[in-house]
Simulated scan of single mutants.
Amino acid sequence: MFTGSIVAIITPMTSDGKICRSSLKKLIQYHIKNKTKAIVTVGTTGESATLTQKEHNKVILLSIEFADNKIPIIAGTGANSTKEAILLTKKIEYSGVHACLTVVPYYNRPTQKGLYQHFKSISENTNIPQILYNVPSRTGCDISPETVIQLSKFKNIIGIKEATGDLSRVHQIKQYAKKNFLLISGDDSTALDFMQLGGHGVISVTANIAAKEMSNMCSLALQKKFCDARRINNTLMPIHQSLFLEPNPIPIKWAAWKLGMIQNNYIRLPLTQLSYKTQLILKKSLRISKLLN
């Protein structure tokens, strides 16, 4: 269920900053049509940090409704408080989501023992499948492969999204984690290399605007047709790189709006609109990748 191209979907908003139902529905239909394997809603790319708890739940429920059981939904339920992460996860446990994505606790910088106890507590207090999310550039804390291997022994901890870009971790975790433990890249630029080393897929920002291409690339990689997969990836590389010239999701929201996929380019403070300089670079990348005429 959670292999191949998984999109970290944006949260479209109206001009006055409210959740845009029609754009969200359009995006989800786009991913169903283009064979994206699953949708991660209210993650980093979904601006979870600036959504209220009410909005957070609303986006999850709308995503389930619009998906209509045609594509799995993974909900972001992480927090820097273990108690809050458990409450967020329990709240959506029987909503119809297929798994939760739980980020390494940010800001408080726990030890590896603290990280182990945090995820252990979530696992023991909930039944929903749990995908760990390691993104040290945002959290200020890095969960080690050794801790991941220990956590993989829990029945409902089914995988990890590794957004470090450190490809050596694939072998380290794969060698000692439980069988079928999912290794999912969180870095579009290195995702194909990650899969060639034994990873199972990518939670992708690029897939927001290039769903078909990312789906095809990952499908070929899982079939070990890496030369064919690399041809697609080489075409997408300018996009992979341009989308991170400014903090995510600033560039991807602008790109989705530019391509007519969402009605409005509204983004919440403290994030601001994409700079004109980066717009020019991203527009050029969209043309090189043949996503924009």
Rank of each mutant, 00 (worst) to 15 (best):
3 T>Q: 14
3 T>G: 11
4 G>K: 07
8 A>M: 05
8 A>P: 06
9 I>F: 08
12 P>Q: 04
13 M>K: 11
13 M>H: 04
23 S>D: 12
28 I>G: 07
29 Q>C: 11
29 Q>R: 13
30 Y>R: 15
30 Y>V: 02
35 K>M: 05
36 T>A: 02
42 V>L: 06
42 V>R: 00
44 T>H: 04
44 T>Q: 02
49 A>W: 02
50 T>R: 11
54 K>L: 12
57 N>Y: 15
59 V>K: 09
59 V>Y: 01
64 I>K: 00
67 A>S: 14
67 A>E: 05
70 K>D: 03
71 I>C: 09
71 I>W: 06
72 P>N: 03
74 I>G: 07
75 A>H: 11
76 G>V: 04
76 G>C: 12
80 N>V: 02
80 N>R: 13
84 E>D: 12
85 A>H: 07
86 I>S: 03
87 L>C: 08
90 K>V: 02
93 E>D: 08
95 S>G: 08
96 G>S: 01
98 H>E: 14
103 V>P: 05
104 V>S: 10
107 Y>F: 13
109 R>M: 10
111 T>E: 13
113 K>V: 07
114 G>E: 09
116 Y>K: 10
117 Q>T: 14
121 S>E: 12
122 I>Q: 07
123 S>G: 00
123 S>W: 03
126 T>N: 12
132 L>N: 05
135 V>I: 05
136 P>A: 01
136 P>G: 06
137 S>V: 09
138 R>V: 00
140 G>V: 07
141 C>K: 07
143 I>H: 08
144 S>R: 04
145 P>G: 09
146 E>R: 11
148 V>R: 09
149 I>S: 06
152 S>M: 09
155 K>G: 02
159 G>Q: 02
164 T>M: 04
165 G>D: 10
168 S>G: 13
170 V>P: 00
171 H>W: 15
173 I>P: 02
176 Y>H: 14
177 A>P: 05
180 N>D: 15
180 N>F: 10
182 L>G: 00
185 S>A: 14
186 G>E: 07
189 S>P: 10
194 F>K: 08
195 M>T: 07
198 G>A: 07
199 G>W: 01
206 T>H: 11
207 A>N: 01
212 K>N: 12
213 E>V: 00
226 F>Q: 10
226 F>N: 11
227 C>K: 15
227 C>L: 15
228 D>V: 01
230 R>Y: 10
232 I>Y: 01
232 I>T: 02
233 N>M: 00
234 N>S: 13
234 N>D: 14
235 T>L: 15
236 L>P: 04
237 M>N: 12
238 P>F: 11
241 Q>I: 15
244 F>M: 13
245 L>F: 09
247 P>Q: 03
249 P>S: 00
250 I>D: 01
250 I>Q: 06
252 I>M: 03
254 W>E: 08
254 W>M: 06
256 A>S: 07
257 W>S: 10
259 L>H: 12
260 G>P: 04
262 I>T: 03
267 I>M: 01
272 T>K: 12
274 L>G: 03
275 S>K: 14
277 K>S: 14
279 Q>K: 15
280 L>T: 13
283 K>M: 14
289 S>F: 10
292 L>H: 08
